[in-house]
């Protein structure tokens, strides 16, 4: 088995407090454009901050600011875990 640190996972599976590096944005159309211009681009480091009380959405920190994304939308963002 390959090391779990290097195989891509989707952003919605990243646990609060963990950091990951974005490797791909699989979204289409508007969502894709919006994610890209908000700094969700391959290579960026993204940290999962907290999950909303009802389980969705999730707050992330990227490029020095916080934003909230629904898990369904986060599922189209591929990341690899960053090892601290």
């Amino acid at each position: 088995m390959s090391s779990p640190d290097h195989s891509p996972v989707t952003l919605d599976t990243v646990i609060s407090g963990d950091k990951a590096r974005i490797v791909g944005v699989k979204a289409k159309g508007h969502l894709r454009k919006r994610l890209l211009e908000m700094g969700i681009i391959p290579g960026a480091i993204i940290e999962s901050i907290r999950v909303a009380p009802l389980g969705d959405p999730v707050e992330f920190r990227v490029k020095g600011y916080n934003l909230s994304i629904r898990k369904g939308d986060a599922a189209c963002i591929e990341v690899v875990m960053e090892v601290e």
């Binding site: 969502l31 919006r34 908000m38 934003l67």
Partner: peptide, 9 residues
């Protein structure tokens, strides 16, 4: 539709 919102300090 998707929900992407900035969380201001």
């Amino acid at each position: 539709s998707p929900f992407i919102m900035e969380m201001p300090p």
